[in-house]
Every structure is written in C-alpha cells, then in structure tokens.
Simulated assay, not measured.
Amino acid sequence: MLKTICYKSKIKSTLNILELEALFNETQNKNDTENITGVLVKKENTFFQIIEGQSTAIDKVYLKIKKDSRHTNIIEILNNPISQLSFNAFGTNYMVIEDINALYGLQKYITNLEQNNFENGSLFLKIIEDLLTTN
C-alpha cells in the first residue's frame, strides 16, 4: 500500500550551510534506496516536506524524521494512504528548493497534479502558495 506524509518544521538555528547540504544528501540517498519520492522545501528557517512510497517505508522514515534533532516543532499536515505516486516524475524525484524561482516551479508542477486530479494536489498547491506568500 502506498502512503504520503506531509509536514513542516522549524530548522534548528545552529545548522550551517554544510550541515544542510549533508542533510539533503543523506536524505536523498536513504530515500532513493527505499524508493521514496517527494520534495523537501527549505524557506528561511522552515522545512516543508512531502514524502510518498510504500507505507512501511514511509512510517519508518517519518519516525526517524520526528526524532531528528536538526529541526523542531514538527506539524503533520497530511498522513494518508494514496493510490498512486505524485512525485515520481518530479525531476530527480527528490530535491531541495531554496530560491523563489524553484518554489514557483514546484507550484507549477503541483498545479499540474491538481489539474490531472492527482490525490492531494489541491492541498499541496495550497501549502506551496502559503509558503510563497509567507515572509
């Protein structure tokens, strides 16, 4: 069974750019081996992440995420079964978005999901729009 989890959290203020890059590389490598797709958005001091894949793998990864000291104040937005993957065609399947142009690119991708009636497309679009308008 497939599942998606979406959450946002606050980045620990002591993390430097090298630690963030290491976090991304570690996340991408682990998720690639577990066939987990998704997107990780970093905007200022906030992480927003969508992960999707086999339910057991997603639950295992999310448990590790919740215990990770590199971020705090995790707010779970979505934790649902899905019938198909939304992000398996999104670039390298997993990426960090750090600038506004890339965030608009993600918004365009999610708008396409919504127009093609992918599950949770409307919710993901709303969250991305909120990120775009938050200072």
Rank of each mutant, 00 (worst) to 15 (best):
S55H: 02
V41S: 03
A57H: 10
D130R: 02
E129T: 11
S9M: 07
L2V: 02
T134V: 12
S122W: 11
Y109K: 03
N112A: 08
T14A: 03
S9D: 06
K126E: 15
T27W: 00
L113R: 03
I50A: 00
F90D: 01
Y62E: 13
I128N: 11
E129L: 13
Q49N: 11
T56Q: 09
L113E: 02
E26W: 11
N73D: 15
N35Y: 09
L103I: 05
F124V: 14
L103K: 00
I97Y: 02
V61F: 10
L63Y: 06
L132W: 05
S83Y: 10
I36H: 02
V41Y: 01
K60M: 04
G53W: 02
I74F: 09
I36A: 02
S9G: 14
E26T: 13
N101W: 07
I36M: 01
I128C: 03
T27G: 03
L125M: 10
F87E: 09
L113K: 06
E19G: 01
E21L: 07
Q54R: 12
V61N: 10
E76Y: 08
N25L: 14
L40A: 06
E19K: 04
Q107I: 08
H71E: 01
N79T: 13
K12N: 15
F48G: 00
V39D: 09
V96E: 01
K30I: 09
I100G: 05
F47M: 02
H71F: 07
Y62W: 13
D99A: 01
L132P: 03
Y109T: 04
I51T: 11
I110F: 08
K8L: 14
D68W: 04
P81R: 13
L23C: 02
T33M: 08
